[in-house]
Computed example of a mutant assay.
Amino acid sequence: MKNWKRWTCLLCVIGAGSSFITGFTDRPTVHNRSYYETRGEIVWEVPMEEKLIALTFDDGPHEKETQLILDLLKQYDAKSTFFVVGNRLDRYADIVRREVEEGHEVANHTYNHLLFNRNVSSARILKEIADSEAKIKWVTGQECKWFRPPGGNYSERVVQIAKQAGYTIVLWSWHQDTKDWTSPGVQAIANKVLKNARNGDIVLLHDNIQGSMQTVKALQIILPELKKRGYRMVTISELIQHKPAQPLQSAPHSEF
């Protein structure tokens, strides 16, 4: 009941057009990556001395792919973070519960995988986050305050809505965008991860790519090789618990 009242209040405030969040406009902002990192509002990676790396999976769960990925993660003692789409949890609740039982994180990737562009209202953005949160909590009994907007699309408006809802946006290391959803080939996916692997990386993968098993097959190459190199594959929460060894360099990123 408390959560319902909290979300209802936020929706009403946004709908009334109040100053709930400063700078709430649909205009593109000029803030670069360092601006959001300094404020702790977006995480791309966590540079560190420890050999830790975070594998993340978007868009699931999928009845087959996710199960095969979980089998591989278990085989290589790897933990990961699954950014799930809320409307898929009714069909695959048992898979999501398995993710939690095996030590993985289940994080928020909206309810309908809606791309947040200028035409999407602030109230709709908040509802996408809230509905997914409610479904995740109903299935797992847990809350995870990491949020990844579909497509990595963010703006000052999206960042501040997520922040007011209690979330931190987690994206990925720009050199670790595997583009596996385009089915570029098993070796191409594996090479992207392995040739660019650095301490504190966040890797973008997907566990719901219709008609493709390339990610699963690429993991059969990636996981043993990372382990051989001495990397420990961890959740976003564990990665972020480690203090960066040095400040990040600014990297510009164009926003919609």
Rank of each mutant, 00 (worst) to 15 (best):
H104N: 15
L115V: 11
T38N: 12
W138P: 01
I95P: 00
Y111A: 02
E45M: 04
F116R: 08
K51C: 03
E101F: 10
N112F: 15
L70G: 00
D71K: 14
E50A: 12
L126H: 05
A107E: 07
Y36S: 01
P47Q: 08
H104A: 07
Y36G: 03
E105R: 00
K74I: 07
Y111F: 14
T110W: 08
V120A: 09
E37H: 10
E105Q: 14
I129Q: 05
V43I: 12
S80G: 15
N87C: 11
R118T: 13
G103Y: 11
I125W: 06
T110Q: 07
H31C: 06
A130K: 10
P47C: 04
K135G: 11
G40L: 06
H31A: 09
T29F: 13
R27G: 08
L55T: 05
N119R: 14
K74A: 14
L115E: 13
R91G: 09
N112T: 15
G60M: 02
R124N: 04
N112M: 12
Q75F: 05
I136Q: 05
V30I: 06
D71N: 13
L126D: 03
S132P: 01
E50V: 07
E65W: 05
S121N: 12
S80E: 10
T66W: 08
R98K: 13
F82K: 03
T110N: 04
R97H: 11
E102S: 11
Q75A: 13
A93L: 09
P47Y: 09
E37C: 05
E45G: 00
N32H: 13
T56C: 05
T38F: 10
I69F: 06
K135Y: 15
Y111D: 04
H62I: 00
K137S: 14
A107T: 06
Y36C: 02
G60Q: 01
K135T: 15
K127W: 15
V84D: 01
R118V: 10
L73S: 05
H104P: 02
Q75P: 01
V106Q: 00
L114N: 08
S132E: 15
Q75H: 13
T110K: 07
R27L: 10
E105V: 00
S121A: 13
N119S: 13
F82D: 00
E105I: 01
S132F: 02
I42E: 01
R27F: 11
N117Q: 14
V100A: 10
E41A: 05
S34K: 14
A93D: 15
G40K: 03
V43Y: 10
A123P: 03
E133Q: 12
A130W: 14
L55K: 02
G60N: 03
V100D: 04
Q75G: 06
P47S: 07
N108W: 01
D77K: 15
S122V: 11
Q67P: 00
R39C: 07
H31M: 08
E101W: 12
F83D: 00
T29M: 09
S121G: 14
N32T: 11
V84A: 07
K51M: 03
A107H: 03
R97D: 12
V43Q: 03
A54P: 00
A78V: 08
E50T: 09
I42A: 04
S34F: 13
T38R: 13
E49P: 00
L73A: 06
E99L: 03
N32Y: 14
H109L: 08
T56V: 04
I125N: 03
P28A: 07
A123R: 12
H62Q: 09
I69S: 04
H104S: 09
I42G: 01
E99A: 08
